[in-house]
Design a protein around this nucleic acid. Structure first.
Lengths: 239, 239
DNA sequence: GCCGGCCAACTGGTAATACCACTTGACCAA
DNA sequence: TTGGTCAAGTGGTATTACCAGTTGGCCGGC
């Protein structure tokens, strides 16, 4: 019984999503003026306060600028999640956002696992175990174990004792909130796949508990490699 | 005539600032429930819609969580620079900020160099060379070649073709702005040390240009290891 | 013709109010 | 103990109104 938590997304978020999409798709180019709050409310069939709430959310995100008495203007999207970090040189091989992230995690988290195997003590190992337990608990509740999954990877980073690495892993994980990612999550969301992920997690934990640095690195590499492949099939299905 | 633009900060921002301060000062500890929207409006002397707008701004920033029918709750402040990322478990080996960062860079940038050796093409190699030239130019001007140094490491990350890795390297570099770091920079700032760093950079570049992945990794490790030691002597001198 | 000021239309800013849906906890009955 | 109901409190949304700022056109004067 795959109950997915009933979560009536609040109106202002739905409105913000729509406007965000319109800006992203070039419907409202950077610098252009959007319709007035009243017009937006009318066109969207919602009240003006709701539109205002959505606009404030977008303003905080830095997507639009509100000028009193003048109107609402779309802004340059300087700080796109990650991809927009185009350097002075053209990219070598363009890779879509989610896959970029997974490759980066492959590189970084494998080394984290290797390091953790050297530095982790009992409390750290227990913390990782607890994350696995939470993951399993979520799965028994027929929920996608996203919380436990995240916790597992963070705990390993924490076990390195290096706050900067924790911050990096956390940062990469935050990127999973993008819309593209969420579509892929759905393809990923089957009990069989999650069970596979859980088993791979256990292998990583086992290597860390055994202080086997090379094995921990290899296990994490295997895990993220599989995740990459699983996403890839989901990607193909989307097209 | 230092006119500062008359900018009547919008009400919702003022309200958000106040609440943000209260959360930051521990008045509303993480997890605690804030007064209801109606109470906040009454206490602040503003209307409820304005309070709602402020709360939505804070919600987008990740400072509070709004639960329908229940109330508003202060959240953990996860996103502080780096150090405040105290995990649920006590750190293994406490390490001061700058050394944490260098260790993290050691792990991550070594792999970046190894990857770059595989993926870099001529334009990327030339971009790295340009960064070295800039570094050398700054040194001839008797300046600490911070700009060129940063550029060198960023160019290597860009040469991997992975935007996420670029973002990570950039993020770690930003942390160099801390006060503690700057004190150390002074100790680091001698022509002899910078010349050593430049030579190490060249070794990395040579390996990447030669498509030698393992050598690139080793060269970068050597470089950051030396940086670590140089900082360490500076650290001892401080005490 | 050109410049200045005025004014009206439009825009966002804020407030007040009302009603709905949800959560919570107390209370009560089986 | 269990479950159910119910009322109070909470956030969600809509409606309405009015204020204050911006904008652009109009019209007078120079």
């Amino acid at each position: 019984m795959p109950f997915q938590s009933i979560e009536p997304r609040r109106l202002y978020r739905q409105i913000a999503d729509q406007i965000r999409t319109l800006i992203g798709s070039g419907e409202f180019p950077a610098g252009s003026r959007l319709p007035s709050e009243r017009d937006l409310a009318k066109q969207l069939g919602v009240s003006r306060p709701s539109v205002r709430e959505a606009l404030i959310a977008l303003e905080v995100e830095g997507l639009v600028e509100v000028r009193i008495g003048s109107g609402i203007y779309a802004l340059e999207q300087a700080g796109k999640p990650v991809a927009a970090t185009a350097g002075a040189v053209e990219p070598v091989e363009a890779e879509a956002g989610p896959f970029e992230l997974l490759r980066a995690r492959y590189v970084i988290e494998s080394e984290c696992a290797a390091l953790a195997a050297k530095t982790a003590r009992k409390p750290q190992v227990q913390a990782i175990e607890a994350a696995l337990d939470e993951m399993q608990g979520e799965m028994q509740g027929a929920q996608p174990p996203l919380g436990g999954d995240r916790l597992f990877h963070l705990r390993i980073a924490e076990a390195t004792g290096n706050g900067a690495l924790v911050a990096v892993v956390k940062m990469l994980w935050e990127e999973r909130t993008g819309p593209l990612y969420q579509q892929l999550e759905e393809h990923y969301d089957s009990p069989a796949l999650w069970n596979a992920a859980l088993a791979e997690h256990r292998a990583v934990l086992k290597a860390i508990a055994a202080r086997d640095s090379a094995a921990a690195r290899a296990a994490m590499q295997r895990h993220l490699n599989h995740a990459y492949k699983r996403f890839n099939t989901g990607w193909d299905n989307l097209k």
